[in-house]
Design a binder for these strands. Structure first.
Length: 274
DNA sequence: CTAAGGACCTGTCGGC
DNA sequence: TGCCGACAGGTCCTTA
């Protein structure tokens, strides 16, 4: 479900409710996510005050004095801040109960999510090989050019590779390629320098616009308070197969195909095939 | 090294 | 109405 804009929206949503509060208890109802939730989570967290809520790619980072709790929401995960006594439903796998009757609840029907502990002063293996943040200055055309050089894999698959750049999932990869006028199946190494410049700019722009709208709600994404995100109405290609291209004067119709096992959308007019 | 495909899960939707 | 397959916002691991 969540790509970078959705995770950032959640980060901003939960932080003000929880920062400065101590964890009073941890409830694990279902430890079997993609990896088992560590059994000693409560020992790490009990009594610790939450100092900050960060994000690296699609990982949320809950910083405590003794370490960091990593949360990845996978395809279907969501987090809500709830009152202290909120009855749990199906797929409510984990609660962090904070002082002052605040409860952070992880809900994840598909259980592709991840939760793990990173001790102070260590780097978790999940974070060790991540590429630059797309909205930071070290994500630039020169970096993408270096990553694309000599690669035959489709450009869409390259920009979705978290070692190249983090946080770009299926929706925003499709959107950014449309905005840059690049066909998703083009071999990465064949892109011309101006195309790579445009693509970097498009990725930045699409992600920033989506964050400003609170992310994309297709079916079940909600912010920490339960509201949807409004970027869905700004999607140019994702989920729009058969509909007309939005580019003024284009007149193409959006097509759908599969690239690297993921649904891919593009306009055959303004994103010429390889 | 690169790239592709399966695996992990449940829910929903469309077709018959 | 009910069943069955396809598909869904992600990543890790194995295989070629």
């Amino acid at each position: 479900m969540p790509e970078l804009p959705e995770v950032e929206t959640i980060r901003r949503g939960i932080a003000p409710h929880l920062i400065g509060r101590r964890v009073e208890s941890v409830v694990v109802r279902q430890p079997r996510l993609r990896r088992p939730v560590p059994a000693e989570l409560a020992e790490h967290l009990d009594g610790q005050p939450l100092q900050a809520v960060g994000r690296r790619g699609k990982y949320l980072l809950l910083h405590f004095p003794n370490g960091t709790l990593l949360i990845h929401l996978g395809m279907s995960g969501s987090l809500r801040v709830l009152p202290g006594a909120s009855p749990a439903g199906r797929h409510d796998h984990l609660d962090l109960c904070f002082e002052g009757e605040r409860r952070l609840r992880l809900h994840d029907p598909r259980r592709f999510g991840l939760v793990d502990w990173q001790a102070l002063g260590t780097t978790h293996p999940w974070l060790a090989r991540l590429g630059p943040e797309p909205l930071d200055a070290d994500f630039h055309a020169q970096w993408l050019t270096q990553q694309a050089a000599g690669r035959r894999r489709p450009i869409k698959s390259l920009v979705m590779d978290s070692a190249v750049v983090v946080g770009v999932g299926n929706i925003y990869a499709n959107e950014a390629l449309w905005q840059a006028g690049i066909h998703p199946r083009r071999p990465a190494g064949d892109l011309a320098p101006p195309e790579l410049v445009r693509l970097v700019e498009a990725i930045r722009q699409v992600l920033q616009a989506a964050i400003a709208q609170g992310g994309t709600t297709l079916r079940d994404f909600t912010r920490a308070d339960g509201r949807p995100g409004y970027f869905a109405q700004s999607l140019a290609v994702y989920g729009r197969a058969g509909e007309p291209c939005n580019r003024p004067g284009c007149g193409g119709r959006i097509e759908q195909t599969v690239i690297a096992q993921r649904s891919s959308y593009y306009c055959p007019q303004c994103q010429p095939a390889p």
